[in-house]
Nucleic acid binder design. Structure first.
Lengths: 244, 244
DNA sequence: GGGTAAAGGTCTAGATTCCAGACCTTTACG
DNA sequence: CGTAAAGGTCTGGAATCTAGACCTTTACCC
């Protein structure tokens, strides 16, 4: 995570550029900027964050080095969210995954638990407006024609379910986890097959929430969020195989 | 909360002193320093946090103004955690509680949900070492002779239960919530009666976790953490009555 | 009582970071 | 081919943080 350290012990001062970079990468991970989108101009970002342009530039440099964005000069230029992202750095992905595997195990476990709780609570608390929003999101997801759309509608569906808990903090935690997972493993594991695999889960989950069946919702959510984990597991297995 | 803001929008730079103050107040809320304890000297804190002494002093000034600590000069002096704390500022407590009541509703709701999840998960995952730790903590709590001891053992019992989930992030979330609740409402509502009221819950919760009964553990945890909320509700009711 | 040690209280000079703004360079559009 | 919209660069000043020396208060110990 990026949060409060254990208690005493050294205090690491985050530079302004790092903070801006964190905000931006989170926004990207949450889908507020999609692949190929142009971020606001440096001057606009500086105004938005109420920060100097140099700090914004430091953040963009950081994101560009990480391969998350690509900067183009001239009129109509700017910082664009990279479409490739994953393929560009096979090696760094390997290193990161194999080195931090235990962290990821814990992260996905945590996510599964929290998302189960969200599904359970949503099933207990959803009102008519929530149910309408869930139905709409499910329809949109079913109608999506390509992985990019599917991803957007998938995100949206889970967001409206989280909102149905009527607890802003849970919604925030949901988004925090989403961004952390997205940033941690990039988009590589999310292929079309994954969404095919997830489709019945989505329907089942949504129906359980709509029906107010908390136990079933929690159970399906647990399975559903194990998909990402399994995809990642397969990826790591493949990498391990390739290497030996 | 003290967490990641929504997305875009102004970036508030936290001064070093604020960060140190936050760490210290969290440590106090988590019980790492008890009432009347002396914090490390300014020079020691500066070394611990790897920060200048001036910054530590800024943090201490802040905490002193908030009434959380009291600074005494001379040999054997230092920063002491205030015992009174609550009584000193009836008025500010009123203002804070009445103004932020909705925030607190949401916070306690969140806490109840998360703690239920923790209890449920602990019941499913506790191993023999966890069970032994839980039994020991429960015995210690039952044997406590005064509210201060009861508070310490109460904290400890919930911590070992959280650890039984075998997920470090859940443990951290548990501690984060504990510190937030402690700081938000001070210690006033925690009287001896509260602990008396909580005693059967503790035993029931511990037994459910020990027996691996996830549903019962989750249910009891939900009731248990409603106690704090109810105590606060009574407090607010009393304040409202006094004022009218 | 007097000496001393351990704390907080104060000050200063220097380094670092951040900001505001001007100005340059590149590039596309009209 | 001129202009507008972007990124790239530089500079001076403000704010913060640091390191360290030195002062003041207070309790303990001889």
């Amino acid at each position: 995570m990026a949060e409060e350290p254990p208690s005493l012990g050294p205090l690491r001062a985050a530079t302004t550029g790092e903070q801006v970079a964190h905000r931006l990468s989170t926004a990207i991970a949450l889908g507020e900027f999609s692949l190929g989108d142009r971020l606001p101009s440096e001057r606009e970002l500086a105004a938005l964050f109420e920060v100097s342009r140099e700090s914004v530039r430091a953040a963009l440099r950081r994101l560009a080095e990480a391969g998350l964005i690509e900067v183009r000069r001239g009129r109509g230029g700017g910082a664009f969210v990279r479409a490739e992202w994953a393929e560009t750095s096979e090696n760094s992905v390997r290193e990161a995954l194999l080195a931090q595997w235990e962290d990821f195990e814990a992260l996905f476990d945590y996510r599964r638990l929290i998302e189960s709780l969200i599904a359970r609570t949503a099933a207990q608390r959803a009102d008519d407006a929530d149910r309408a929003a869930i139905r709409a999101a499910l329809t949109a997801f079913d109608a999506s024609a390509n992985p990019a759309e599917a991803r957007r509608h998938d995100t949206e569906l889970h967001l409206v379910i989280a909102r149905a808990t009527h607890n802003a903090r849970l919604v925030r935690l949901h988004q925090l986890l989403l961004s952390e997972v997205s940033l941690g493993v990039s988009e590589e594991p999310y292929t079309w097959e994954i969404y095919e695999e997830a489709r019945p889960h989505h329907r089942g989950l949504a129906e359980a929430v709509l029906a107010g069946d908390a136990e079933r919702a929690a159970g399906i959510a647990g399975e559903h969020f194990a998909i990402t984990e399994n995809a990642l597991r397969r990826l790591v297995a493949r990498i391990g195989r390739d290497r030996s």
